[in-house]
Amino acid sequence: MTSERHEAASPDDDRLRISELADLAGLSEAELIALVDCGVLAPAEGLPGQWVFGLRSLTVARTARRLREEFELEPHGVALLLGFMARIRRLEEELRELQARLPR
């Protein structure tokens, strides 16, 4: 068995152009643009055509690809589901914060 040592790339280190994001996530650039248009994906910086994305966008885009493939969803269905998932995640974060503030 081989053993290798690696430095994990943290979300703030990674900056991905749309072509790299498409390659890593397994989506087309058109699909990524559609996700940006729906507000599901937010470029970290740049004007349209020069967008730069963070690693968090890669997580969202990979989830979009999984949902599309594994539930066989069309793009609007994927966007709707991702929107709900983001809301659930925000609510869970708020809940975690409130629970942390409560004495045991």
């Binding site: 053993s3 430095e7 994990a8 968090r56």
Partner: peptide, 19 residues
């Protein structure tokens, strides 16, 4: 394969790191 990955300080719940 065995991978040894350095997790940077401040890694938090729900964070995703990439190798």
């Amino acid at each position: 394969r065995n991978l040894k990955a350095r997790i940077p300080k401040g890694a938090t719940e729900g964070q995703v790191l990439r190798l």
